[in-house]
């Protein structure tokens, strides 16, 4: 039994760094009393430069300019979000995405940003900015206007 446990511990320790674990991104919206929000989830590196997008909630490209930080970084290029675009998220509702992310993103200075925009309301670029660290996982981070809280869990 003991050897089995030891072997299990060993194999887990060996395989863990090589594998990319699924990461669940949970965004809860506040009841701001407007239409559904467009959300852009993307990652910047240690220097603050745009690295890539993780999810786009909202299907109409003509509104993407209101996700202004994301739009500035990408020029609104929809190839950045091909295959990772979904519906906008209603007030008070939850968006939960599970992605297989590269392990190299954690504890390496990367930050996850969420830009938010709602029709006829003020744009809210980088409403959430959270460093991607293993220690920060499962700890909710509050937003400013439309996002009640955001959590990434591993």
């Amino acid at each position: 039994m003991k050897t089995l446990l030891a072997m299990l511990a060993l194999t887990t320790a060996l395989s863990a760094p090589a594998l990319a674990a699924p990461v669940t991104l949970t965004t809860n919206l506040s009841n701001y009393g407007g239409d559904g929000a467009y959300l852009a989830l993307y990652v910047t590196d240690a220097k603050g430069a745009y690295k890539g997008s993780l999810w786009m909630a909202g299907g109409k490209a003509k509104y993407y300019k209101h996700l202004s930080d994301w739009h500035r970084a990408t020029g609104g290029n929809t190839a950045e979000i091909s295959g990772i675009t979904g519906a906008s998220v209603g007030a008070g509702r939850q968006l939960k995405i599970t992605l297989d992310l590269s392990d190299a993103l954690f504890d390496a200075g990367y930050e996850l940003h969420i830009d938010a925009a709602v029709e006829d309301f003020r744009d809210s670029p980088s409403e959430v900015v959270v460093p991607l660290t293993r220690a920060g996982a499962n700890k909710p981070v509050a937003g400013r206007h439309y996002i009640r809280d955001f959590t990434y869990g591993m």
């Binding site: 990319a20 990652v43 690295k51 890539g52 997008s53 993780l54 999810w55 909630a57 295959g83 990772i84 979904g86 519906a87 998220v89 509702r93 939850q94 968006l95 939960k96 995405i97 599970t98 992605l99 297989d100 992310l101 590269s102 993103l105």
Partner: peptide, 13 residues
């Protein structure tokens, strides 16, 4: 470079 190649996102909302 963010995603594991071949992986697929799962979304619930």
């Amino acid at each position: 470079g963010l995603f594991t190649p071949g992986s697929k996102p799962v979304v619930k909302q």
